[in-house]
Design a protein around this nucleic acid. Sequence first.
DNA 1: ATGGGTGCAAAGTGTTTGCAAGTAT
DNA 2: ATACTTGCAAACACTTTGCACCCAT
Lengths: 133, 133
Amino acid sequence: MKQHRNTKQRQLVLEAVRSRKDHPTADQIYQDLKMIDDKISRATVYRNLNYLAEAGEILHVKVPSADRYDWRLDFHYHLFCTGCEAVSDLPLVYNQKLDQEVTEKTSYVIERHRTVFEGICPACQARKKKGSV
Amino acid sequence: MKQHRNTKQRQLVLEAVRSRKDHPTADQIYQDLKMIDDKISRATVYRNLNYLAEAGEILHVKVPSADRYDWRLDFHYHLFCTGCEAVSDLPLVYNQKLDQEVTEKTSYVIERHRTVFEGICPACQARKKKGSV
DNA sequence: ATGGGTGCAAAGTGTTTGCAAGTAT
DNA sequence: ATACTTGCAAACACTTTGCACCCAT
């Protein structure tokens, strides 16, 4: 069985994700960490984000363009602005019944579902209006 | 205003998506079309898939790895096997109330939501069991 | 004829990987 | 000491783009 080590870099990546209230991309985490440890490698950041998501210590949010990471551990839904690509959390409860329903209707073993709402945020609405005059 | 033309290639791409019951990736469409028109370019396939999705003639399904395209025009939910990456449709009705709910709770203009269930298909369940002995 | 569309190849993104050196256990 | 992890750069997979030519309208 594979042993897991608690490296300084792994700690840093975890702290970096937790210290942000938003939903950073891997590259944003990398940029943040470069200021703390200018030797850290992009590959290390990606590897640790994958590791931490796999280990259940952070959440992996899959949205268009670049994936995001989330310090929240409970499954929840996201809101994606198709204008500026901002990602935010939604105050909706995760509908676990849906997973049961799909399990019953298919022969899959369902692990979870991901729901992303797509829309235009207030700022982009204003920008659009302006642009279309 | 931009005019749109009805080129042979655009027709071919549309027909190719419609002629498949599954959820092909852009490259699968390209491979299919090469057999019909060996001069067709990957770029043309991508451009037309984007155009057709934008025009509402096909649906763009965003899942991990590579995006898929769907001939079905009604919004619906998808099932993704994390083992073999197969994508299938789900017999669940699109919950339009959720869009209203999110519109009310946020100041976004919601266009839609995307829900993808993640699980292991029967074939991969069998494969896994075998592999773990 | 005009400007949208095509094919090609090159460039972009975002992410992963091979390898030698480093380090947690 | 062992073998997991790192940093670097190169490789990857998927998609977009610049450009000259082509063709639908």
